[in-house]
Each structure stands twice: as structure tokens, then as C-alpha cells.
């Protein structure tokens, strides 16, 4: 298992290096002086051109491109991601500040959508061809067809503006101390985000389950005289699980993408709304860093999925 993980890492690391190189290239090519990414803007405004030049030298900005890239990577590995253009805040601080909100939202959505999506998809497959199956199929279709922000807007209109059951948006208001204070704020965005994802998981797990149920070993299991539930769940569902786990891993990019817009709709102070702010304000260092971070998250997720599938499916472990 360890060699398996190491082998996968050997694929992921070069990939990250290439992408970080491209991102760095992008950073160099976009407008804005590199010095301003690196030092406190207030200090910069008090410097004379000579001091500025000395600083450039000291910061290694006059070195060759590759050397600068190496320093940049080195700094990143030590937690220094540079500074945002607006206000000169270190990007690492922004991450620390915004990440918990995004993780909170994504984790809840992932949990909800997996549990609900898998169960509904399995039910749909087992009741194939019945009214239950077709209505679930149509609902699933609706789920992947309605723009998530539109769905979010409608839910704000109904639950926040008309019924006034839940707040319109935001996360931490002044005076909020306990989890209970915060809980109402996460309900709407988490529900909207997970309902949109549920549809996809449901459709996929239905297909995986149908595929698994059509295999020969199901007939073998039936010929052994096993009860129907055991054939469906112990044999059918267990085999369908592998592609579903893979899907959930691959949904992570979708989740990140979805949360960008949902965070904006619900004014959720996470990485996503920060990213949109950065794109609007042409804050390139921040845009690039968040993009790079999302790639890192995606690659890590696919690594975890690989390991998980290896645990679930004995065939993968060997190949």
C-alpha cells in the first residue's frame, strides 16, 4: 500500500511543479511590480528609488527567471505565499482567515449529497422502470439543469425574504459566539450546494448500480439461493461502490466551482467569494494563489480517491 501511495505521489508532484511554473509565468507576465507582491506597501511608499533598487537586489528580483521561480517555490513551501495587491495583506493570512468557512460549507455539502445521492440512486436502480424510478430521474435532471445561483436566489426569496425563517446570508455577525448563533446561516447555502450535487451523485450511482446488477456474478449469487437484499447490497452495491467513490472524488472540482458562486450568492466569507473579489479587482497574486491552491486540492483529492479505491477494490491494489 505504501509503495502504491508513493507511486501516485510521483505522478502528482511533477504535475504540481508544472502548474506552479505556469502560474508563476502568469504572475510575471501580468501587470504590477513584483516588489509590491512581496513587501508591506506602507514601507514601500517611504522608500527612495535607490532603496527600492537595493531592495530588488536583496529580494533577488534581478536574478534569472528560473532562480526567482525556485525562490518562489521555496518560500511557498515555508508558508510565504506573497502578498495581495489590495492592502498588501499576506496571502497566507487570507487563507487562514477564509478557509474554515469554505471547508465548513463544502464538507457539509459533500456529506449531504453523498448520503442522499447514493441512497436515492440505489433505490432508483432497484426499482428500475417504475414510477419511483422515473420521477427520481426527472428530479435528478432538474437538479443538474437549474443554475445553482438561480436556485439559491429562489431559496433566499422564499425562506429568507418571505418566510423569514433563515438569514439572507453572511456567516459571522458581531456578537455571535456559540455554534447555534452561526448555524442558521449555513443551512441555506449548504442545502442549496448539496442539493445541486445530490442530483449528479444520484444519477451516477443509479448507473453504477444498474451496471453492477447486470453482471454475471449477480446471477451466480442468485443461483446460490441468496435472499434478494443480500444479492442487491452485499454483491450489487458493494461493486457499484468503486465508481461512486471515484465520482465523489472527481466531484471535488465541481464542489469548489459550485461553492465559488454559492458563496457569492449568500455572501459567505470563504475562499470562493475572496476569489471573485480578487478577479474583479485584478488582484493577480491572489487570483493565481487561489487557483494554484485549488489545483493542489484537486490533485490531493484524486490521490485520496486512488487510495480509497485501492482499499475498496482488491483488483486495483495489484496493477
Amino acid at each position: 500500500m505504501l509503495t502504491f501511495i508513493i507511486r501516485r505521489l510521483l505522478i502528482v508532484i511533477p504535475m504540481l511543479l508544472v502548474i506552479s511554473f505556469l502560474v508563476y509565468l502568469g504572475l510575471e507576465l501580468t501587470p504590477g511590480d513584483a516588489v509590491s507582491h512581496m513587501i508591506d506597501p506602507e514601507a514601500a511608499s517611504q522608500m527612495s528609488p535607490a532603496q527600492f533598487e537595493a531592495l530588488r537586489e536583496a529580494l533577488g528580483l534581478n536574478k534569472s527567471f528560473l532562480e526567482r521561480y525556485a525562490t518562489w517555490v521555496y518560500n511557498m513551501l515555508h508558508g510565504d505565499f506573497g502578498r495581495s495587491l489590495s492592502g498588501g495583506v499576506p496571502i497566507s493570512e487570507i487563507f487562514l482567515d477564509r478557509l474554515p468557512a469554505t471547508l465548513e460549507l463544502s464538507f457539509l455539502a459533500l456529506l449531504f449529497s453523498t448520503v442522499i445521492g447514493c441512497s436515492l440512486g440505489t433505490i432508483s436502480a432497484l426499482k428500475r422502470g417504475t414510477a419511483t424510478d422515473s420521477s427520481l430521474t426527472v428530479i435528478g435532471m432538474l437538479g443538474v439543469s437549474i443554475p445553482e445561483f438561480f436556485f439559491g436566489l429562489v431559496s433566499i426569496l422564499i425562506f429568507a425574504l418571505h418566510l423569514r425563517w433563515l438569514p439572507v446570508g453572511g456567516r459571522l455577525m458581531p456578537g455571535y459566539e456559540t455554534f447555534l448563533d452561526r448555524a442558521p446561516h449555513i443551512i441555506l447555502p449548504a442545502l442549496v450546494l448539496s442539493l445541486m450535487m445530490t442530483a449528479g451523485v444520484m444519477r451516477y450511482s443509479r448507473a453504477a448500480m444498474l451496471d453492477s446488477l447486470s453482471r454475471e456474478f449477480i446471477r451466480t449469487a442468485r443461483s446460490k439461493g441468496l435472499p434478494e437484499w443480500r444479492i442487491n447490497f452485499v454483491h450489487g452495491f458493494r461493486v457499484a461502490l468503486t465508481p461512486v467513490v471515484v465520482l465523489i472524488g472527481f466531484r471535488l472540482p465541481t464542489l469548489i466551482g459550485g461553492s465559488v458562486i454559492i458563496e457569492e450568492v449568500f455572501q459567505w466569507p470563504g475562499i470562493g467569494s475572496e476569489f471573485i473579489g480578487a478577479v474583479r479587482g485584478a488582484d493577480y497574486p491572489l487570483v493565481m494563489m487561489i487557483a494554484l491552491f485549488s489545483v493542489f486540492a484537486v490533485l490531493m483529492a484524486s490521490l485520496i480517491v486512488d487510495v480509497l479505491t485501492a482499499i475498496i477494490d482488491p483488483r486495483v491494489r495489484l496493477s
Partner: peptide, 13 residues
């Protein structure tokens, strides 16, 4: 009963 194709008649997991 035993089946034609032993490759697919057993559950791989």
C-alpha cells in the same frame, strides 16, 4: 448451477 464464463461469474471484490 455453474456458468459458462468463470472469469465474470465470481464477484471480484
Amino acid at each position: 448451477m455453474i456458468f459458462q464464463d468463470p472469469m465474470t461469474a465470481l464477484n471480484p471484490v
